[in-house]
Design a binder for these strands. Structure first.
Lengths: 335, 335
DNA sequence: GCTGTTTGCGCAAACGTTGTCTCAAATCGA
DNA sequence: TCGATTTGAGACAACGTTTGCGCAAACAGC
């Protein structure tokens, strides 16, 4: 069933039907009634692809994340989705597995599909590849990581350095001096900023950061495990460890337990984004919790604002406040 | 940049450019070279929306799940995505929050967007609403739950009744006689089938299922907690409990611990889909593990088969084998 | 009743592709 | 060298919408 058939059936022109469907232009009250009735009866559904082609924009948002099964991202997606569906947009979700190549490919595909805007948790693709699109006004909203080498973008994120300082300060306040940190690749700003905040905090407290206790690797559990194991091999080991995300933390804890050590008695643990839906992980993990859902919904809202008010050329950088959640994993007695 | 511009630039017709882009029809070697070069230089990207309109099908798969942050579904999605991208399709992901209305709405939207096929973990929407599409040959592939009142569909799932029997049998083998079960709404086949298998197994073992120890509610943690608490209030309590998914199990465990009981010493626990990425939940949970990733990829493959061989009118029902993962939560001594 | 404005609706041209139908030119066999 | 065949490439009509333009009818003001 399409516009044409409906029009024929009712002896009106396609334009008239189209206008009543969209509520645009002028249509007589009587004809409108008839058309609306017919639509209900026949169950006509407009072809969105044709619409998108005509209006040169699909009412669609693209979301590119590194890992769908990471609950931080799935919350972000839910946030995006909520705002999208409120505006009757829908959402393309893409999963890059943290591969730059895949990320670039997906962004390209999304743009070819005429998305109205993109929400990207980049792992470092070269955004300049998409310059023509950016210039043509398609909003790119970054969350989490900053893009490389590019100024013209919107951002929704927490202040990672600051958050990192605050959680590190908490460890220091607990009496720790020998604090280790593990993080992902430094070309991701979440990594570098969190490390920066960590260093800054230690220095502010007159503690010299120990380079051997700074682990820069990947954001995966495997790396957290390996790094922690290495640190624990040595007699002189850290009394606290900060992990830049939850996967690293899980790996670290595994190594700690394997070594027969206790948390927080022997070693305190804290991280970013610990997310225990089950409530069963014990001890509870002290962590910086990002407002993931809000990050997603605000990112989508930025795109919506651009949609309603094209032309707008300014970029929004929105900083959200994370929460420092204190749990047992860091509340031992130490010094 | 579009076909037209490229054509003008090279003094050839749009058709010729289109043909070389798609590798269809005949184009002289020399012209092809020139065109390919120009494409590289200008970075021309075809407009997928126009293509989709023309060929009356977007190379796109729709996936409708109840809960994105459920790792079972996110694995399914990854599976779908893998196959899709291998075939240069992409994937619309929709989240229904277990609401039938949302589910129907999303299916509608996806169809309006001319998806080539749908992968649906239904929570009970009325598929007959989409009869015209089904008849027109758009493949619907159900995973997890069966659709209501409709015969013409593809299915990829485990045999829930059988799996349920096997995990129940395991509890019986451990010496349990007083076994409780909690599950979601019975209009979802995962619920009803799992309950059926549970009953069947008890009966086969000459155990009379106790109706008071059968909880039918929702698949949420909250319900697992409430139900378990109720059961534990009574002096005469079950010595083992089977939960139809992991959320219910988490809730149940919370109630058990609150009551000061031990797993598995006081009460054994088993469930479907327990998924402890962290490896930190203790004791480990005995569970039926579904091959989620395979479910997704096979579902997508079914759609791909249909794409290559339209006309095919048969429906595929594929049954996958789950794994019964034995852990400490059920390995106590009991009778 | 005559001009001037509004209202309702149809026509037709887009939107960016693909694919069928041409037809001229090139190639072939004898 | 001549017809027969193959090959290369252009014209043009789709695909299902939206929308600017135009025109007749209806309505207003005087």
């Amino acid at each position: 069933m399409q516009l044409k058939d409906l029009a024929k059936q009712l002896n009106v022109s396609v334009s008239t039907v189209s206008r009543t469907v969209n509520g645009t232009g002028r249509v007589g009250a009587k004809t409108r009634e008839r058309i609306l009735d017919a639509i209900k009866q026949t169950g006509y559904q407009p072809n969105e692809v044709a619409r998108s082609l005509k209006r040169r924009s699909a009412r669609t948002l693209g979301v590119v994340v590194a890992d769908l099964s990471n609950s931080f991202y799935s919350k972000v997606i839910k946030g995006v989705e909520k705002v999208a569906s409120e505006n009757s947009y829908n959402v393309f979700v893409c999963n890059t597995d943290e591969e730059v190549g895949k990320e670039e490919e997906y962004i390209r595909v999304l743009l070819q599909n005429q998305v109205s805007g993109l929400v990207i948790a980049t792992v470092g693709s070269d955004v300049r590849l998409f310059q023509p699109y950016i210039d043509s006004g398609i909003p790119f909203v970054f969350i989490d990581n900053l893009p490389l080498l590019e100024e013209r973008f919107n951002l929704v994120a927490i202040d990672n350095a600051k958050a990192s300082r605050s959680i590190t300060q908490h460890l220091v306040d607990q009496g720790h001096r020998k604090i280790a940190m593990m993080t992902g690749p430094l070309n991701q700003s979440t990594s570098s900023e969190r490390l920066l905040g960590f260093r800054k905090c230690l220095e502010d407290n007159g503690i010299m950061p120990e380079e051997r206790w700074i682990g820069v690797g990947t954001f995966k559990q495997e790396y957290g495990y390996r790094m922690m194991r290495e640190w624990l091999l040595n007699e002189d080991r850290p009394t606290a460890v900060l992990a830049a995300n939850d996967f690293l933390m899980y790996g670290a804890i595994k190594a700690i337990y394997e070594r027969g050590l206790k948390i927080p008695e022997d070693i305190a643990v804290a991280c970013f984004d610990a997310n225990d839906e089950t409530g069963l992980i014990s001890p509870g993990i002290t962590a910086i919790i990002q407002p993931a859902y809000e990050i997603g919904s605000i990112a989508a809202e930025i795109i919506m604002r651009r949609e309603h008010d094209k032309g707008r050329k300014q970029y929004e950088k929105i900083e959200l406040e994370p929460v420092l959640l204190l749990k047992q994993s860091s509340m031992g007695n130490k010094g």
